[in-house]
Design a protein around this nucleic acid. Sequence first.
DNA 1: CCATAACCGAGACGGTACGTCGTGTCTTACT
DNA 2: AGTAAGACACGACGTACCGTCTCGGTTATGG
Lengths: 203, 203, 203, 203
Amino acid sequence: MTEEGTAVVRAVRGRPRSAAADRAIIGAVLRLLERGIGVGALSMEGIAREAGVGKATVYRRWPGKDALLLDVMRALDEPPPEVRGRSVREDLVEILEGLRRKGLAKRDSALLRTMMSHFHSHPRLWQEYHDTVIRARRETLHAVLRRGVAEGEIRSDLDVELLGELFVGPMLSRALLHEWRELPEELSEQIVDGVLDGARPRG
Amino acid sequence: MTEEGTAVVRAVRGRPRSAAADRAIIGAVLRLLERGIGVGALSMEGIAREAGVGKATVYRRWPGKDALLLDVMRALDEPPPEVRGRSVREDLVEILEGLRRKGLAKRDSALLRTMMSHFHSHPRLWQEYHDTVIRARRETLHAVLRRGVAEGEIRSDLDVELLGELFVGPMLSRALLHEWRELPEELSEQIVDGVLDGARPRG
Amino acid sequence: MTEEGTAVVRAVRGRPRSAAADRAIIGAVLRLLERGIGVGALSMEGIAREAGVGKATVYRRWPGKDALLLDVMRALDEPPPEVRGRSVREDLVEILEGLRRKGLAKRDSALLRTMMSHFHSHPRLWQEYHDTVIRARRETLHAVLRRGVAEGEIRSDLDVELLGELFVGPMLSRALLHEWRELPEELSEQIVDGVLDGARPRG
Amino acid sequence: MTEEGTAVVRAVRGRPRSAAADRAIIGAVLRLLERGIGVGALSMEGIAREAGVGKATVYRRWPGKDALLLDVMRALDEPPPEVRGRSVREDLVEILEGLRRKGLAKRDSALLRTMMSHFHSHPRLWQEYHDTVIRARRETLHAVLRRGVAEGEIRSDLDVELLGELFVGPMLSRALLHEWRELPEELSEQIVDGVLDGARPRG
DNA sequence: CCATAACCGAGACGGTACGTCGTGTCTTACT
DNA sequence: AGTAAGACACGACGTACCGTCTCGGTTATGG
C-alpha cells in the first residue's frame, strides 16, 4: 500500500505555491494578534494587507479564517515538554508549568479562545485541532500517569483519563476561564500536591 | 465622573422604554442561539429583525453586541442550587451536576464561549460578568468547602480557592474545552470522589 | 386625475432617500467621464468614492452600471431644439447642428457609445433609452418633415421615417462612427442641401 | 523607435509560435460572441479557457483585449463585394445590402460596437481599424461614385466623401444605432433611390 | 387636556469586510 | 523559445453588517 498519509499530492502542473507567501501570512496573523488587535477584529482583508499578499493567495490556501487560525495554532505548537523528571510528581508539575506559561502568552490564549468559541459551530474543526495538538500532550500526561501507577505512586483503581483531568482541569480552568492576569508560580505544585494527597484529611 | 452603575438615572419625561421590546430582544438572542446560528454569526441586524424591533431600539439599550450578550447571560442565570445536602460529598456532587447540565445546553455554552473569546480584549466586560454571575456560584462552593473543613471532612491546610478549583476545574475543562457531546452522568461523582481521596494510593 | 407618471410611489416608512446623494452620484459620473477616464474604466467603486457615498447607496438606486448610465444620459438630455425656423431647410440644419455639437461633447458621446455597446445584450435597456430620449428628437424631426411635405418643400411620396434617416444618418455616422475629431461647421448645411437636391444631376 | 507595424520581426531561434494556437484563440472569441455572451463579459481568462490555451499564449500575441478584438474583426473581414453591376444605382444598392447583411450578424455587430465604445479612449486603435478595414470599403464606394460622376449619373459639384456619407450613413444609423431587429430587404433600394432623387419634389 | 419629549418601526447613510473573479505578469515542467 | 497550467499582487464585483441618522407616528407625563 502506498504511503500517502495526510499530505495530499497536488498536481505538479503550473507555478508552485510560494512558501514565502505561507510564511508571510502566518507571520502576519501572529503579528496582528500580538499587536492586541483582538481576535474578533482579525479580518482576512487585514491579514492579506499586513502580509503584503493578495486576498486570493490567502483563500487559495485556507477556506476561511477559522481554518487559517487552526494552522496558525499548529505552527505555534511546540513539541510537548517530554521531560522524564526524577519523579512522577515532578513530571506532573513540569507539564502543568508548560500549560501555565502557554496560557500567559497573549497570542496563544487569544488563539485558543477563538478556537473554543467556534468549535461548537464547527465540530470538525475542533476535532482536527484536538486530534493534532491536544492528543499528543494528553498522551504525554497519560504516559506519566501510567508510569506512576506501575511504580505504585498513583492509584490503580481510577481511569487514567479521569486522573489526567483532575490534574490538568484546574490549571486550564484558571488559565483560560477565570484569569487573564499572571498566575502564581507555585500554582502547579499546589495543584499536583493537592490532587495527589486528596482533599480529605489523611488518617 | 458620574456614577454610572447599573441603574442609570434616565429623564422621567417622554415615553418610557417598552419592556416588551426588552423581552423581545433578549428572546430573539436566545432563539437565534438555540437555532444553532453560531455565535460569530449573531448580528445586531439579525437580532433586531428576529425581535421585530428597530436597530436603534437595541442600541438605545446596549452599546454593542458584547454588552447585550452579557445581559443575556445574566438573564439566563438561574440562582445557584443552594441545596444543603445530607453530606459535603453530596453537595459537591450536586454543584458539579449543575455545571454539567448547564454546559450541555447549547445556548449557554455558546454564550459562555463568546464571552471568553472576548474577555481578553474587553477585561472590564469579563470582570463584570465574573462579578455578577460567577462570584455567587463560587461563593456557594466555598461555603460548602468551609463547612467541610469545619466538620473535619476536608483538609484544613489548603486554601479554599485552590480546593474549589480542584473540584470545579476538571468539570469545566471537560464541559467547555474538550467535549461537545454528552458527558457521562457519573462524571460528577467520579471527580468528587477522586479529588476527595487523592490520586496517591492510601495507606 | 392625479399626476403620477412613471414615478413609483415608494413606501413612506423609514428615512427617505437623500436627494443630495442622487445628485452627488450623477455628478461624480459626469466628472469622471469628463476627466477622460474612459467608459470601460468606470467602476461602481470609483463612482461611489468620487461621490463620497457608500457603494450600497449607489446599488440601492440602480441595479448596475448600465442602469445608472442610462439615468445619467437622461439627466444630461436637454430638451430638443424646438426652433421653428424661417424655413424647412433651416430647421433641418438646426437639428443637425444640435447633433453635431452634442456628438462633440466628450462625455456625451462616451455615454452614447457605452449604451450602444451594451444594447445588444440588454435590449430592454436600449428600448428604454430609445423611448425616453430618442423618440422625442425623432418626433421633432418628423414634424418638420411633415410640415415640409404640407408646404410642398418635401416630396410626399416617401415615408417620413425614411426621409428622417436620410438627413440624420449621415451626421450620426460621422459623429459617432468615423470621427473623433472636430466636424466642420458647414457639414450640417452640406448634408441638408445634398439630401434635398439629390445626388443625381437635376435637369 | 523601431517600426512596429503589423509584421513584427521575431527572433528566428527557438520553437516557432503555434499557428494552431492562433486559430484556437480567434475561434474561441467568435464562438463566445456568437454564444451571446455579451461583449463586456468577454474576458481574456474566458477566451484562453475556451481556446484550451494558456493565458500567456494569448498575451504573447496581443497586448490586450482590444488589440485581439481588432484582429478578430480583421479576420472576419471578407473582401468588399467589388461587384461591378450593370449600373451605378445597382452597385450602390449592392454595397448597402452588404452592410445590411453584415449588421445582422450578431457577432459582427457586437464586435463593431465594442470597437466603437473603445475608440474614444484608444484613438490609435480605432485609427488602425479604420485604416485597415473601413478604408477599403469606402474606396470601393468612392470608385463607384466617381464612375457615376464620369458617366453623368451623379452630380459633379459635390465632394465624393460627402456623397458617400449620404448613401452609407442612413444604413449604418439604422443597422447599428436604432435597430437590433431585422431590417427590411427593400431598405437598400429605398435609401439609394431617395438620395439619388433628393427629398425635394422634382420640377 | 394638551404640549412636550422620549420612545417606536423602518430604513437610508458612509463605511469596512466578505469571498469571487478578472487583470497582466511570473514561474514551473515539458516540448 | 514556445506551451499549458496555474500562482502571484491587485482591484472591482455585489452583499451584509456596522453604528448613526432621519422619517412619520405613538405614548406618558407635567404645565
